[in-house]
Amino acid sequence: MRSTFVPQIAALLGLLFLWEAVVLAFNVPAHVMPTASAVLQDIGTGAALIGRGVARTLLETLLGFAIGAMVGFAFGAAFAWSRALERVLFPLFILSQAIPVIAFGALVVMWLGNGIWSKVAIAAYLTAFPVTVNTCRGMRSVDPQRVALLRSFGAGDWRVFWSLQVPFALPSIMAALKLGISLGLIGAIVGEWFGDTVGLGILLLQAMYMENMPRLWAVILVCGVIGIALYALMEAIERRWVWWRPEL
């Protein structure tokens, strides 16, 4: 298992070396592009601050993701269950997604305050949409013959839902969750821009105002690592628990 990551790690190291070499070779000024070593050094010196930012942003992301996933699942299941409900509410969902989340940012802060919950709300809002769509689609595509079979065993709606529709939709829900966790991270970082004192989004803003290039790149790198780690986590969950593909 470990050996499979060797090429990826080698590629990453290669990229860092290339970065370092290009910046040095072309004598790029530090305020345009710092060297890779300067960025890594900044991660070292700012470790405590960045660590606190990571903890906060990660918490916002995971809380928002969890809430968004649950809300999305509930709405997706409800839409799959009732076409009428879908017809009434789904256009509102589309409309809400057509408005960029930034436009809601200020509103969310005014409602939920400057603390963690406004970021959680934005992360949840971004996660919920793909989960809703894929839950509904996954449950709609359930094999009618398998539904008939369960009914012939005397199964009621609830049993068909949990024993058939949910597992049938899970691969499709899982795909949405992978997208949703990335969106959740974006939501958390963007949410912090509307005002807070800790978090990776705040570190980005501070680095921008102070024109601290190494710090800016340090935070960008850290955001990337978190994004990859969260995605890898979802992949691992999928491989372990949602490995099947619906047979039709």
Binding site: D143, G154, R245
Partner: peptide, 15 residues
């Protein structure tokens, strides 16, 4: 429903 044991043409196993 629930009173007759029914086996359709396809095995319809849950993967």
């Amino acid at each position: 429903l629930g009173k007759v044991a029914f086996m359709p043409q396809r095995d319809l196993l849950l993967p």
